[in-house]
């Protein structure tokens, strides 16, 4: 993983920005701390959905611990996370790279002809995330959902997972103690509670790449595997991400 990819994985905000002179009366609406850079956003690389209109705006940046305050006129690729939001946006820096270094990293990885270098970087980052998460899985399968049933009692706690069990027909077992053409039982959290909102909820006849995790001893009687992370369900074509680092999706 390149440093840019590593920083993008750690930071919600990635953007190219130029440091502006801070007017004497220009302060973020955060009360404490003297070290603030005023940064105008030139170009967005990655931001939360709520900040898609951020290009051209000015924000406040608290340098990463141990980093110097960037000087007015300097342009960097900044990687940062949210700190305070009011009339202004205040971020805390994760890292910064010289703009030209980021450009160099754009062309290091394999790219699709005609693809925007940023899209290439984001695609590589997504592939890395899938590989990293798959490395924690007990089994990885391509499978189709052929049955759904409740696996536990009705939930009586607000944050109960409401365990249901999916029966999956395995079309291809990529990893784990599962054979092709086998049927496998998988627990999933059917609860719509905030705690389980991102957990995959298989649908009848759904095909997917499933990253299965072994159940804890207290759940083994319900099923051998479970899926609880948003990343546990992937489009089937993402299996290429697992086979060869840097391989392009089909």
């Amino acid at each position: 993983m390149t440093s840019a990819m590593s920083f993008m994985a750690e930071a919600a905000f990635s953007f190219v920005g130029t440091v502006e002179p801070a007017a004497a009366d220009t302060r973020p609406d955060v009360s404490e701390g003297d070290q603030w850079a005023v940064v105008r956003v030139n170009r967005i690389l990655q931001v939360p959905d709520a900040f898609t209109q951020m290009a051209g705006t000015v924000l406040y940046l608290r340098p990463a611990e141990g980093s110097d305050l960037p000087a007015p006129g300097e342009t960097f690729t900044f990687f940062a996370n949210g700190l305070a939001f009011g009339a202004d946006v205040s971020l805390v820096e994760v890292a910064r790279l010289p703009e030209e270094e980021l450009s160099a990293q754009f062309v290091m990885g394999p790219a699709v002809v005609g693809e925007d270098p940023l899209d290439t970087l984001q695609r590589q980052l997504a592939a890395t995330k899938v590989r990293d998460h798959a490395s924690t899985a007990s089994a990885v399968i391509l499978a189709r959902v052929i049955g759904l049933e409740r696996a536990g009692a009705s939930p009586v706690r607000e944050h109960d997972p409401d365990w249901w069990r999916a029966t999956m027909h395995v079309t291809h077992a990529e990893r784990g103690d599962i054979a092709d053409d086998q049927e496998v039982k998988v627990l999933y959290a059917n609860s719509l509670d905030i705690w389980w909102r991102e957990a995959p909820k298989p649908k009848a006849a759904q095909n997917g790449l499933w990253l299965l995790h072994s159940t804890e001893p207290e759940l083994e009687s319900l099923a051998r595997y479970k899926i609880i992370h948003a990343e546990d369900l992937q489009p089937p074509q993402n299996i290429d991400h697992l086979r060869q680092e840097g391989t392009q999706p089909q």
Binding site: D29, V30, N81, G82, L83, A84, F85, G86, A87, H159, I194, W195, R197, E198, A230
Partner: peptide, 17 residues
């Protein structure tokens, strides 16, 4: 007027529980 401060330990998919 209101503003936000990210000071609560634990940041899940929608912030804190």
């Amino acid at each position: 007027t209101w503003s936000l401060r990210n000071v609560v330990p634990g940041n899940g998919s929608v912030g804190t529980g």
